[in-house]
């Protein structure tokens, strides 16, 4: 298991604009997307695409480097995407295109 690379993917770094540079509150209520992400991570690990322990270790590593300025509770999403990009499971173009589509859909509803 090689350590994750500190690649700065523009599509992921751009999410900081709205996340803001603030620490997570210790006992804040989780947002619905976090439960969805947790289930996604379990599925990825269960089906062999991305092991949970590798992801958690990468969250520690990248959370203190590449994503140090992001709120702690957002790093699981960033690192999951980061590792899927790094392993070629998805491409930056695919992710950016899909994020634009999702954003447009959510904003219009």
């Amino acid at each position: 298991m090689s350590p994750p690379r500190n690649t700065h993917y523009p599509v992921l770094m751009g999410t900081l604009r709205k996340a803001g540079k603030r620490p997570s509150e210790p006992d804040r209520a989780s947002a619905p997307w976090e439960a969805n992400l947790q289930a996604t991570c379990e599925c990825l690990s269960w089906r062999g695409a991305l092991d949970n322990l590798e992801r958690r270790r990468a969250e520690d590593t990248l959370g203190e480097t590449t994503y140090a300025h992001f709120p702690a509770h957002t790093r699981a999403a960033l690192v999951t995407a980061h590792l899927l990009l790094e392993r070629g499971r998805i491409s930056e173009h695919e992710l950016e295109t899909r994020m634009n589509q999702v954003r447009a859909r959510l904003q219009s509803s």
Partner: peptide
């Protein structure tokens, strides 16, 4: 939230690529 967007995008792409199924989720 941008993370609503990111999570939805990751999940959708992963399902499309057969990394897991909607039923798994």
């Amino acid at each position: 939230s941008e993370f609503d967007v990111l999570e939805t995008a990751i999940r959708g792409l992963a399902i499309e690529k057969g990394l897991f199924s909607p039923e798994d989720h």
